[in-house]
Nucleic acid binder design. Sequence first.
DNA 1: CGGTTGGTTGAGCTGTATCAAAAGATGTGG
DNA 2: CCACATCTTTTGATACAGCTCAACCAACCG
Lengths: 230, 230
Amino acid sequence: MPGLRATPFLDATDGDAIVLTDQQRADLAHIGTRLRVPRRTLIYEQESEARWIYAIVDGVVKSYHALPSGKRSVAAFLFPRDLFGLAKSGRYVNSTQSVTPATLYRFPIGDLAVLLKQRGDLQFKFLLKVTHELREAQRRAILINRRDAAGRLAMFVDFMAERANHSALRGLTVTLPMSRSDIAAFVGLSPASVSRAIASLALRGLAVFDGRHHVRILDPAGLKKLVAAV
Amino acid sequence: MPGLRATPFLDATDGDAIVLTDQQRADLAHIGTRLRVPRRTLIYEQESEARWIYAIVDGVVKSYHALPSGKRSVAAFLFPRDLFGLAKSGRYVNSTQSVTPATLYRFPIGDLAVLLKQRGDLQFKFLLKVTHELREAQRRAILINRRDAAGRLAMFVDFMAERANHSALRGLTVTLPMSRSDIAAFVGLSPASVSRAIASLALRGLAVFDGRHHVRILDPAGLKKLVAAV
DNA sequence: CGGTTGGTTGAGCTGTATCAAAAGATGTGG
DNA sequence: CCACATCTTTTGATACAGCTCAACCAACCG
């Protein structure tokens, strides 16, 4: 059962607000296929022919772009109820790989286009979703401009805290399934700087890392302040 | 007569490929209002109630976001056939201001939503447009991660060259209607660094600035190489 | 023709990238 | 189940690039 996560541009409700009707779910399920993939599975590669749009049911996926220099930039981490499969002129613009074992729905891009044109209300929900993503991408582009490593990392931790338990920052321990280098490639720092930034957050008493994949947020207010200090 | 500019995700045609039918134009014109604004006009302010979606017929608009620190980050420059008016929960997320005198179309957001839901094919063109913008925003977020000032500026010049004369880089003189500080706020540099980057491009024989608002591209290939050197 | 705004140039400082090496995880096969 | 090989992460020292602050210059405006 596919779903979508986004804040509508119109209504004043916020949080995860897009709910598909049973009919819409059925329509989607009809053209889609469900599949499970283990972690570190390459789902598709950039420049390859774009045949499907994917929806995440469960798990985490990263979307990354290989640059001419050989570096990899992580464009986005994707979570349950996110869509992916962004294409341009029939080719995917990024590569995607599962970070954890994941359950996905996959829709043939042509069938989906036909369905959306027929069902104006369903298409509208997709429009909301893409608009939501656009907003997030812009926000990230703005935040990423800051130079200081600690601020960038704080931003990332905040970002993860908001998705994981969307009871923003109250579940004080957040899981970060991805590697340090993935985080570095996402926030635009070197892995070394990420490591130092982690130490810096601990030093300031904002958050401590417990093993590779867990952060405990000690001072939510202080963290938010650092995030906003742009 | 409103229009849209985007590269579809499906078809292999590229360039400005979204064409509205006469019927679609008529539908839009019916709910929209045309207006002209002089340069430097504040069109709307961030956090204010989002009532309209705008389409640019002619002129250049900047969308910027005021940050807690008092700095302003330019989220996007908008050109003819671009849409703007991105909102979240009924409030605009950015402020927008005209950079040149501009002709706009303005659609009441509620009426537009109704129209789009009714007209699946028109809505699909909006979906393509927003998807296009999302792609661009992601690309920019990736490119902006580079540290070097000259590379960032080269990216910007290339970006402007592609919109202005969309005969990419062959019209060797490009007009940059915005100020240096706007450029700085867009590419994420200080105005001082932009100034030095301009000098650097000239020194390398890639492009020379002629007055405040014109660049002459001397070595398109070399410029592209610098842009790609990420 | 002054005043104001916007842009360029210069000097010093801060902080991140880089390179290198050590320490810590992880996974594999015996 | 352990030992080894590999990969990831951390830590350290250094260099360099852009930011800041400030002064100077140019353009635009009444």
